[in-house]
Structures are given as structure tokens and as C-alpha cells.
Amino acid sequence: MLSMDRHAYSNGLTDANPLKKGAFAGTLLGIALVFDISTLHLLIALGTSIIVIIMGKVDFRVYLKLFMIPGSFLILSILTLLVSISTDQKNFLISGEIFGFYFGVVKTSLSLSWLIFTRCLATLSIAYFTALTIPVNQMVVIMKKLRLPSVLIELIVLMYRFINIFIKSFYESYNALILKNGFADLRKSRKSISLLAAMMFNKILGGYKDWRVVLETKNFNGDFHV
């Protein structure tokens, strides 16, 4: 999450026009969702990946690693789609029998799974293109252009800031617990995790109070002016 953010602010395409980047991603997303053509999906995935890696100068291994996380979920769910159960062997391309039930792959589910798989790849690579090349401040420009309600934009901007503060203080507490051998064994780990949760809760509550004071000194009147 943090490393993606870092890339967004310092990649080869950071300074490109945000509206063009947004329109590019939006158009590709539309194409990927409308057309049921796997080759097209693969082309989109390949194209955006090449743009991110070559023009965006994002390290190939970093990019691959980012893909692995949702990728593994994707493969698992495709597998469950792929396999069907029946008492009859005839429709299966390949199958096995357990207790009189046939487990296997049907032709229609094969093509459907393949379509879903390639579509996921395409949309995923578009999502990464967006996350890795459009920093949040440019995202705000795009959201404004799309005439999204300003309350929504404010919410996103603030959430983004607080997620970053949250992650920072989470890691501070987490590292402190590691240094105190809080994760030495399973029992200690369980205790440390609950401790960590309590700490974060207190920090958020305390933070909330401090933020309210600061907002008051800055004459906050309900509008974040984004």
C-alpha cells in the first residue's frame, strides 16, 4: 500500500496529464467489461503492464509481486468455477469419480472460466496502472472533473491521510512489540495482537480529540475545500 503510493508520486508518468491518464484507464476498463473477447483482455493486460514497467519505470519484480497477491485469489476462485460435479460422465472433458459422483471440467465452464480469468487480468492491470501512476492529488482533479460530490472527495482525501498516519503508528507499535519479544510464541503472539488492537483504538480515540482541537483553532466550518 505504502510502496504503491510511493510509486504513484515518483514514476515516469507522474507528471503526465491526470485527465489523460484517467481517460485512458477508464476507456480500457470499459472495453474490458463490454467485450467478451479474451484475446482483447490479454492485449489490454499486456499493454498496460508494459506501459507501467517501461514508461512508468516501475521495477518489474515489484510489479510482479503486486500481481501475485490478488493473483493467487484469482486462481483459487477460477479453479472452483472450473470444476463441476455431476452423476453423469458424459459432458466432461476430463473427470474423476468419487463415490459415484463425477468431478471434472465441462467445456462451457472451461470457456467461461477462461473469459473471467482474462477479464480479471485486464481489469487488475488497469487498476494497478491507476494506482501506480496517478497519485491521490491528481485523483482529486479527476474526481472533480467527473463532478463527484465534494463530500465524497473530502472523505477520500481525509481517509487517505489517516490511513497513512494509521499505518505509520501501527508499525511503530508493532515494531515495539517485536522488540519486546511479543511474538516469541503463539500464546504471546495472541496476547500481543490484542494489545496492538487496544493500542490502536486508544491512539485513534486520542487522535480524534486532538484533531478536533486543531480543527477548532483553524476555524473549521464543515468544509474541507477540496
Binding site: N137, L158, Y160, W211, V214, L215, K218, F224, H225
Partner: peptide, 15 residues
């Protein structure tokens, strides 16, 4: 409050 230095400094003024 803001992720962006400029907006944060401008915040009280805009208020």
C-alpha cells in the same frame, strides 16, 4: 489534515 502541503497551509485561510 491534508496529504498535500499546499492545501494544508491554505486550510485555515479558506475557512
Amino acid at each position: 489534515f491534508f496529504s498535500n502541503v499546499y492545501d494544508d497551509i491554505a486550510f485555515a485561510l479558506r475557512n
